[in-house]
Simulated scan of single mutants.
Amino acid sequence: MTVTAILVLAAGTYAFRVAGPLLRNRMARTRGGEAALPPRLTELMSVAATTLLVALIATATLTDAGSFAGVALPAGVLTGGVLAWRRAPFVVVVIAAAVVAAGLRALGVP
């Protein structure tokens, strides 16, 4: 049963990964020099993807097991976000975020 479940999940994951580029190429074909997707729809799809990513980050940052995660975790994520925005090296971003979150927890901040 376990091997079957793993194989089914692997096939499904592969199908989703392949479907993205295939559908994009199919939908982005031009018809008589005119784009198949209107520019407004392309822009909305980009905004929707960004919105979903921000919602995922907010949920993972602010909650832990269905309740508020405390202040230390969001502070660490905020630190990492600011450093990434300022184009700090990735290793610096990760280490600084971890140090801020761990330091606040060591000081007793939840």
Rank of each mutant, 00 (worst) to 15 (best):
R26L: 15
E43K: 05
M45Q: 00
R31K: 11
L73S: 08
G81E: 05
T63I: 01
L78M: 12
D64H: 15
A72M: 10
A49H: 05
A48M: 11
L73N: 08
L52P: 02
L44I: 08
D64G: 00
L62C: 04
L52F: 15
G81W: 04
T59G: 12
R29T: 09
L41F: 08
D64C: 03
G66R: 06
L53W: 01
A58C: 07
S67R: 14
A36L: 03
D64S: 14
A28S: 15
G76I: 02
D64P: 01
L62M: 11
I57T: 08
V82G: 07
T30Q: 14
L53N: 04
A65L: 14
S46N: 11
G32V: 05
A28D: 15
R26E: 09
A49L: 08
L37G: 03
V47N: 02
M45R: 00
V71Q: 12
T30Y: 10
L73Y: 05
L41C: 01
V82M: 12
G76P: 06
M45L: 15
V82N: 08
V71K: 07
L41P: 00
L53S: 04
L62T: 05
A49R: 04
T42L: 15
R26Q: 12
A36W: 06
L37N: 03
A75C: 11
A60I: 08
L52D: 01
P39C: 03
P74Q: 06
V71F: 14
I57E: 05
L53C: 08
L78E: 08
E34Y: 12
A75D: 00
L53K: 00
T50S: 13
E43G: 05
L37R: 00
G66N: 07
V47L: 14
V47H: 06
V47W: 11
R40Y: 02
L44T: 02
R31A: 10
A58K: 02
V71L: 15
A58T: 01
L44Q: 09
A49I: 01
V71S: 13
L52K: 04
L62Y: 03
A36G: 15
M27T: 11
A36K: 01
R40T: 14
A55Y: 08
M45T: 04
A75G: 09
V54P: 01
L53Q: 03
T59R: 12
A65H: 15
P38T: 12
T61F: 01
P39S: 11
L44H: 07
F68N: 11
V71M: 14
F68G: 13
P39K: 09
L73D: 11
M45P: 00
M45D: 00
A49T: 06
T42R: 09
M27Y: 09
V82F: 13
L37I: 12
A72Q: 07
R26S: 13
T59E: 12
L78G: 08
L37T: 02
R40Q: 11
T50N: 13
P38S: 13
M27A: 14
L41Q: 07
R29Y: 10
T51P: 00
P38H: 09
M27N: 04
T51A: 10
M27K: 05
V77Y: 07
G32M: 04
V77I: 10
E34T: 14
L52Q: 06
T30E: 15
L52E: 08
G80M: 05
E34I: 14
R26T: 10
L78N: 00
A35L: 10
L37Q: 04
